[in-house]
Amino acid sequence: MSQHADTHHEEFHYHAPGLQHQFEDMKQQEESVSIGMWMFLVQEIMFFGGLFTAYLVFRSRFPLAFAEASNHLNAFWGGLNTLVLIVSSLTMALAVFYAQRGNRNMQVIMIILTMIFGATFLGVKVIEYTDKYNTGLVPVTGWNKKTKKNAEQHAAEPAKKEQAFTLPLIETSAAASAATEEHAAPYVNPKGEFQWNSGRHVFDYAIEKEKGGKAYLTEAERVGYFSQGEFDPNKYRDKIRIFYYIYFVMTGLHALHMIIGLGLMSWLLWAAFRGSFGPEYFAPVEMSGLYWHFVDIVWIFLFPLLYLLGRHFLAGGTH
C-alpha cells in the first residue's frame, strides 16, 4: 500500500504485527483467511471432481477392464504411500498444534518430518512410474522404455500378443504373478508403445460366471470388448489404456499438488525457524496444514479406487 494510506490510518488504530491494513482486528483477518482457504479447497475438490467423474463413467461402464488393469498396479507401494501420507498428515497437524503453543523447536521438527514423508511419497511414486515405464504401461506412444531385442522377435510380436490373450483362467494371486513374470521376460517394445501383455484374466472370470446364467458384463462391455461377436483384444486394451491414462492424470496432478505442498513447507520451515509463528499468529501454518490434509484426502480416495479394484478376482475366484 501507499505510504500515504498507512500514515493516514495509524492515527485511528493500533496495528498488531501481521495485521493487514484492510482489517479491523486479528480475529477478522483470521476468519477471512480461513474462509478464503476453504473456498480454495472447495474449488480444488471440484477440480479433482471432474477427474473422479471421468473415472466413474469409465469404471461403471467397463469394470472388467478396469479391474484387469488395476491388478497391475502395485498395491503394496500404494498402501505404503497411503501410510506415509497419513503419517505426514499427523506431523502436519502436530506442527499446527506446536505453532499454536509457540513451541518453535517442535514446530520446526514437525515441519521437517512432514517434508521428509512428503518426499518419501514422491520417491515411491517415482519407483512406481519407473516400473510402468519399463513394462510399457504408460499410455502414450513413445513414452515407454524402447526395447529392441532383435528383428526376429519384433516380427513375431503380433503372434505373441494373440497368445497372451488366450491364457487360461488363473485362480490364485501366486499363479497370476507367476504368469505376469513369465510374460514380462520376452517383452519387446521398439516404439515405446502402450502394451498389454498380461492377458484377460478378469474377463475370462466374468465369462465363466456368465455360463452360470448370470449377466456379468455391463451393456457397454458387450459392445466395447467385441468386434463382430468375437472378443477383440485391441478394444480390451483400449479400455485398459484409458484406466492407465486416468491413473497417470490423477496421480500426476496429485503429485503436482504434493510438490507445491513441499514448496509451501520449505517456506514455512524458514519462517518457523525464524520464530515467526506463535499463539497470536499462526495462520500460515494452519492454512498450509489445511492444504496438506486436503492432498492427503485425495490420496485416501485414489488408493482404493485405483489400486484395489478386482483384487478378489485373482485372490478368491473360487466359485
Binding site: M39, V42, Q43, E44, M46, F47, F48, G49, G50, L51
Partner: peptide, 11 residues
C-alpha cells in the same frame, strides 16, 4: 465461479 470453474479447468 468457485464451484463450476474448476471443472472447466480440468476438462
Amino acid at each position: 465461479m468457485i464451484l463450476g470453474t474448476p471443472v472447466i479447468a480440468i476438462t
